[in-house]
Design a protein around this nucleic acid. Sequence first.
RNA 1: GGCCUCGUAGCUCAGCAGGAUAGAGCGACCGCCUCCUAAGCGGUAGGCCACAGGUUCGAAUCCUGUCGAGGCCGCCA
Length: 580
Amino acid sequence: MDIFSDTKLIVADKIGELIKEGTLPKGVEDCPFSVERPKNNEHGEISTNAALIVAGKAKTNPRQIASALVEKLGNEDNIGKLSIAGPGFINFVLTPDTWQEILRVILKKQDDYGRSDIGRGSRVNLEFVSANPTGPLHVGHARGAVYGDALGSLLEYSGYEVTREYYVNDGGAQVDTLARSVYLRYLEAHGNKITFGPDSYKGDYLVTIGLKLLEEYGDKYVDQPEQAWLAVFREFAIKEMMILIKEDLHFINVTMDQYVHEKSIVETARIDEAIKHLTEMGLIYKGVLEPPKAKRSEDWEAREQLLLKSTEYGDDVDRPIQKSDGSWTYFAPDIAYHYDKVSRGYDELINVFGSDHGGYVKRLTAVVDALSNGNMSFVIKLIQQVNVISQDEVLKMSKRAGNFVLLRDAVMAVGSDVTRFVMLMRKNDVPLDFNFEKVQEQSKDNPVFYVQYAHARVCSLLNRAHERGLDVSDPALEDFTREHLLEPEHIYLIRKLAEWPRIVEQATMHREPHRIIFYLMEVASVFHGFWSMGKEKESLRILQEEDTEKTLAGLALVRSTGIIVAQGLRIMGVKPLTEM
RNA sequence: GGCCUCGUAGCUCAGCAGGAUAGAGCGACCGCCUCCUAAGCGGUAGGCCACAGGUUCGAAUCCUGUCGAGGCCGCCA
């Protein structure tokens, strides 16, 4: 079903035969050779470096091995032409039948063409967003949200069992700050004049919360000391913030499977458990850390603390887990949370963090390695920042000023589909420009519309054919006759479609959804080119007045393109458009 | 000072589980609508893949170092 891995199997088979015959030495059967689409069209449709790799191990001449392999491969029905080129590449041209068969497979398997079992049902915990419950999500969060969600779908499509998880930081000092901020808004709602402290969350979104609190409690807490209202206001505010955040996620079509609260981790004594576990491993000790090398460190004081020996697992320094007053540092609940994740029996943990959290990668990796005896696959994907551009200017955003562009503003302006697509157009670890005006353009300058337009054209053709009374159902299209779709332009498009399973596999292995987006743009490009070719070359037009058989064959190709584009978009969480 | 990520065409970026002559879009220039959506297509120009070493038959891709950009380095989370 994947033409590349099929071909690879055949080549591996031939290598095996050559070993049996004594032409090749034993031990070369597991050589990691590749079968790929060559960049250069003159190098055939498919090529392999098998002879080069095998020669490297067998210490013989690659071209000799190549010709031995070519001799064997000559008997294969699917192969039309073989040649040896360069240092020993073997280039294949397959028979048109072979390519046509791929279309039949696509039409038969539909959305499952490209689905695979490489995950083998592995259970993956995918933690993403996990924004502090202190306000609405901004565009930076949106990128992490979209990346995580698309990655989740991609993994599911590749046979993993994914849990999308949000970790709610509702146990730290910042939610107390939140509570104090809403208290101010509460007082304001009551008619008092308020002044913010330097740490206060000043965003307007808390005004409503203040009003709600007034409605709920009246003036009960107006003149009360902090200890009277702090806990109450905190719980209230967190609840409201999570409603807000869930709305935001809903705006951008992200649904979490579960929310894990820091508070529940603390309350269920997971911290003690985790620390006890680490203590038994001899990784907890009392000690004094070196002063930090950062610039502002005048007020640093050497004190004895409880430390985790994370250096044993590759961290740069050991990390404090308890303050000198005996309370936990922020790191302790994180340890407990990951202890919890490890103990839930996943096969793999993936964390999606903003790149500003890059400093935690080593220590968390150390924690997971320690807690799982190195048996847990643990990956942290860092998401670079989003530059919002409007009127050709980068909007300056600062946490202090609280002028982040909100996720909901972006989605309101350009829609969820466009936002998602644009957010996925870059690799996770490079900065991304989000140009408000550009993403709304309806032209080829805008990749979203470019891809959608390709899909719309597919639908348009099928509709027209249907209007002419043709049966354009997939089973009918599958029966196209082999006399058609033989021109180079046809084959070229089919070859592009045939890459789909491999693209999915690579995107999955690298945990990089953007590869799907780039592939979709390529498919769209090849399809648009094919379409335009029909204007110059009558035989390439899909709808042929006189020739129903030929039309159906063309529609099979078009429909297959549509299936793949639509499925690619769906995995990215973008709705394919049927007309524009 | 240390750690992480990045450095590819004028601009924005792909490619990096090593492979053949390094790709795309934008911008520039030249073409294509009697004909399935020109919301599109074709073509031309444009590169010491930051730099220097190393590994290899072969390096944009792997390793080391240098330079440059950003991020992180608090008993904040």
